[in-house]
């Protein structure tokens, strides 16, 4: 492997990592605050992609300006966060916070199963493809290889912006501080008058919107079709576990690690490509069960 191939592999890894990070971010945020591993996250990702692709196709066919593809993604994500994420938290999860975590996980698993069929009822089985956003930004040539600006530059920039934005929000904004407080110690936070229910609701809506945004951002690069949610959830699950549950910056590092591992596998040993994310996850968990950046849980005495 020469140096230029090495660089190509790095570029591919970063582009891929950016997308995976966006999805894993919502998952880890929800876990950090609600302590729920949300399997339905994969469905929200898929629905985000479906809404963006189908609405995009409709409005561009009607002659609207192509640049609207970008605001459309944000609108779709926010809408899904509120319209779907809200009721899931309010009607289902709220009833089971005091329940064992297996049950919590199974509730999101059930929601996932239901949403899979809902998607098929709404969007059918034929793949959707809507790449206006990607075409708008064009290509860039690096070392004799064409990359799309969208994947090589835009997605990593968005990922970085979201990462920094979320960090600032959690540290500086009032709502963010409340979220941090509830994450640290729920009882203490409630004791000083923080409405934990509202914080949970807000977090879940934001997390769901991030999943949908991940789907929206992915939609120009891929075919949107049944089953994309199930694949994405395991992958982002591996990222989150590798990083340490609830670790936001950690998720960025783990996504990079997995993205690079995957792209180097394609260059060196294509057969190992599928194996890489899980191998990374396993080796990290065996050495540090709480993940790369997780804090070890105190043992109950």
């Amino acid at each position: 492997m020469n140096f230029s191939l090495f660089l190509l592999a790095v570029f591919d890894g970063i582009a891929y990592a950016a997308l995976v990070f966006m999805v894993a971010l919502g998952l880890t945020l929800i876990f950090g605050v609600l302590r729920i591993l949300n399997v339905a996250h994969g469905s929200l990702y898929a629905i985000g992609a479906y809404v963006t692709a189908s609405v995009g196709a409709a409005i561009f066919a009607a002659g609207f300006a192509p640049f609207l593809a970008f605001p459309l993604m944000l609108i779709a994500a926010a809408l899904i966060g509120v319209v779907l994420g809200g009721p899931i938290e309010y009607l289902l999860l709220r009833r089971i916070y005091h329940r064992p975590e297996v049950l919590q996980l199974l509730v999101t698993f059930a929601v996932f199963m239901i949403l899979e069929d809902v998607q098929r009822q709404i969007w059918g089985t034929q793949p959707y493809f809507e790449a206006t956003a990607l075409q708008l930004l064009g290509n860039v040539q690096v070392l004799g290889v064409y990359y799309t600006v969208y994947q090589l530059i835009f997605l990593p920039l968005v990922a970085l912006t979201v990462l920094i934005g979320l960090r600032l929000f959690l540290r500086r904004a009032l709502a963010g501080k409340l979220i941090m407080a509830v994450t640290e110690d729920r009882e203490a936070a409630q004791a000083i008058g923080i409405n934990a229910d509202r914080v949970f609701f807000l977090t879940f809506v934001v997390g769901a919107a991030l999943a949908a945004l991940g789907g929206a951002l992915a939609s120009p690069t891929t075919s949107v079709l049944p089953g994309i949610g199930a694949d994405m959830i395991v992958l982002s699950f591996a990222v989150v576990a590798t990083a340490g549950l609830g670790q936001i910056e950690g998720a960025a590092v783990a996504a990079l690690l997995i993205g690079l591992g995957r792209s180097f596998a394609v260059y060196l040993m294509p057969e190992l490509q599928v194996l890489v994310p899980y191998l990374i996850m396993l080796s990290v968990l065996l050495i540090r069960p709480e993940g790369l950046f997780g804090r070890p849980g105190a043992r109950k005495i």
Binding site: L92, L103, L106, V107, F109, A110, F112, M113, I114
Partner: peptide
């Protein structure tokens, strides 16, 4: 899938 999912939800809740 929807039927199974709903079945599971009802049992858990």
């Amino acid at each position: 899938q929807m039927v199974l999912g709903a079945f599971l939800l009802v049992i858990i809740l």
